[in-house]
Amino acid sequence: MSGTGQPVLEARGVVMRFGGLTALSGFDLTLHSGELVGLIGPNGAGKTTAFNALTGVYAPTEGDVEVAGRRVNGMRPHQICELGVARTFQNVRLFKELSAFDNVRIACHAGSRSGFTSAWMLTPTHDAEERRIAARAEEFLSVMELSPRRDELARNLPYGEQRRLEIARALATGPKVLCLDEPAAGMNASEKVALLELIRRVRDQFQLAILVIEHDMRLVMGVSERMLVLDHGVTIAQGAPEAVRQDPKVIEAYLGDGKLRLRPPREAGTGVP
């Protein structure tokens, strides 16, 4: 499925340093639309740091991030969002006291240019805009199979649905790239499979590039065409899932140095947290 032409998201030699700590070094990533790439690595490998550098939460210490050919270093997250990079959070960050519908409607705001005055005077433009936003929000709720939960407060939704609502909200910003930070965390096996299907469908329906951080190797291998493995901020392997899985460096990062073990790991790469 890997696309050609201009990449929608490109990171070149991104370095993130916090004081003396280098959380991410020489991070390279090229993402074409329609691609689904998995970003894996043990705890503290720098996966979320990479996400934050890509989405503008941090400005990269070194290197460049480009969205559809435009350099976005140092831009604020909302500007990068408007250029087409949306994300979810590792610990669900919904607008808890608002309904599922409102959560998605807020994300639809991106690109709206009407101001306070038209809202106060209830101008026809404002009306049309509100209707457009409502229709859009309904659409994304139904894509993520949340339509029956439309008026439920976000905090009252079950955990799996909160995760889906977060994806619906991210989609509503109209992204070219969707970054999912451990979308399946805390889900049981059957929920994970369903989510996986949903992610794949979303990718096909909206022709998105999707970058997924995941702990569950099996999940991410089943869904992505390409993987990137981080350890201690360094990209230690990348390529097709099967190749990555056999890579001795990856096995070492996940399971430690084989020499120290009593028995060599038989099924390296699976069943790892």
């Binding site: 989405t55 939460v57 604020r76 997250p77 909302h78 500007q79 969002c81 408007e82 949306a86 994300r87 959070f89 960050r93 919904l94 607008f95 808890k96 006291e97 608002l98 409102d102 409607r105 807020i106 994300a107 639809c108 705001h109 991106a110 690109g111 709206s112 009407s114 101001g115 306070f116 809202a119 404002h126 805009e129 509100e130 936003i133 909200r169 991210a170 910003t173």
Partner: peptide, 25 residues
């Protein structure tokens, strides 16, 4: 009741998420 007002509510609820969803906080 407007999209502008909802942007304000989003800031109240979660500033980081609001910013990530394109709200110029």
């Amino acid at each position: 009741q407007s999209t502008q007002g909802r942007a304000l509510l989003a800031i109240r609820e979660d500033e980081v998420a609001a910013e990530a969803m394109g709200v110029d906080t």
